[in-house]
Design a protein around this nucleic acid. Structure first.
Lengths: 237, 237
DNA sequence: TCGTCAAATCCTGTATACAAGAAGTTTGAC
DNA sequence: GTCAAACTTCTTGTATACAGGATTTGACGA
């Protein structure tokens, strides 16, 4: 796995990335509906544990039960919904334990992205990453965490692409999305935004200088902080 | 992430593991049907690129199109099937490039399992792993690769559990299943079985002595070999 | 002979109907 | 008054019907 991918040129936007054809969970089928429900789960409009009545959802979204069921199955596959046979669907309840486990895997995957990015990324991509980092500067004072959250997500997504491993990119993006509400809360912890911004700087440098081990370690720590400082996070819920 | 999980006691069998409630893709809904189709895909009865006609499948499995559709959506979420809107489903075509990418991620995840196992596993679990390794001995001469394949899978699954990270265990098991047909082929490469067996021995030792870095490195190499020596594998197709 | 266009056919996506199981309620007995 | 059992109601899981888009087939023209 040391060869450089021939065609790193991706025209995908960050909001609608060109996914690999095998992208897990990227079922392009009545996608708007899935995304609408997903949005309500991610934003906590539909709280964890809430029952997802098929008939009720069907009425609310003005469709029949069939597409609702199919959407719920997709969301269950993504881990956002729990399907209890013959007893209906509920919004998945994530325990602190599970959350820590997920952050742990996330840290490992991002670390690997960093390692591969340091090994394979082009100068052009590195400039792009730096630009994304610098774009965060204005909102790194912690006054507008939502804006920083968005730009931070952008920064990481560029990093994923730089791994030149579309499968890895897809897996880590899925996890990023799934952890979204918790990452968002995390940024409200005191000083987290400014620290995050500083850490990004070192990450950019490590990748630019091709320091694979350092890039991996920095990214692992960068993500793990969110998992370890977990008391703060749970307290803010 | 250095704390040890309090309850490592798992009564799950290897064939039907007790999955975490958030287990991605573990939608327990008409599961037999999903598994039957999955089996045909994994065993190449349904070859990559083959059209999956809903009506035809419905007739063949003696159900209506509805459960078939729901099964296909689940399989698409798992990456085994590609759903092309309004144009039907086909068995996912995995390019060598994608396969290498998947093996790369697999190597990283298994390496992390090894690291965590070295850190957290109990003496009891380590004995279990050793037993699973020793059970491979009889079929490590390469004369019965299918039997070794099964025992090898068992060995790795015990390892996953030893990470004490149910989410990681689930993710890596999914990938293991998805790469199954290719791993199977890999074992037919000359000397691979005997080498694999020897590598397991070092892995067991590294974990037993709590050497996290070594366990991770050994496992990474152990898996990467399968991805890297891919030329041999493709030639055998 | 090959390419193009059109009609017919097929298949998917969605709605709806129905049956079976789960949950909730009421009634009866102790 | 409390507990249990049976009944009612609700919800899920599956079958089926139908509409609209995709594909295929056939004919016509270059």
């Amino acid at each position: 796995m040391t060869t450089i991918k021939p065609t790193p040129v991706s025209t995908a936007t960050l909001d609608q990335p060109a996914r690999a054809p095998l992208a897990p969970g990227s079922v392009r089928l009545s996608q708007p509906l899935v995304e609408r429900i997903e949005e309500e789960i991610v934003t906590r409009q539909l709280a964890p544990g809430a029952r997802l009545d098929e008939t009720e959802l069907a009425q609310r979204f003005a469709v029949s039960r069939t597409p609702i069921r199919e959407a719920l199955i997709q969301l269950a596959s993504a881990g956002l919904v729990e399907l209890r046979p013959r007893r209906g669907a509920i919004v998945a309840q994530v325990t602190p334990q599970q959350l820590m486990e997920m952050f742990d895997v996330m840290a490992e995957l991002e670390a690997h992205c960093g390692r591969l990015a340091a090994r394979r990324s082009t100068a052009e991509e590195q400039r792009e990453l730096l630009a994304a980092h610098e774009a965060c500067a204005d909102s790194s004072n912690g006054l507008d965490p939502d804006r920083y959250f968005y730009l931070n997500e952008r920064f990481h997504q560029i990093l994923y692409r730089m791994s030149h491993n579309a499968f890895l990119e897809d897996q880590v993006r899925h996890l990023q999305r799934r952890l979204r509400p918790y990452r968002r809360l995390q940024l409200r912890v005191r000083q987290r935004v400014s620290h995050s911004f500083l850490e990004h700087r070192s990450i950019v440098d490590a990748i630019a200088t091709g320091n694979e081990a350092l890039a991996a370690d920095l990214l692992r720590s960068h993500i793990q902080i969110q998992g370890e400082r977990f008391g703060d996070l749970m307290a803010s819920l």
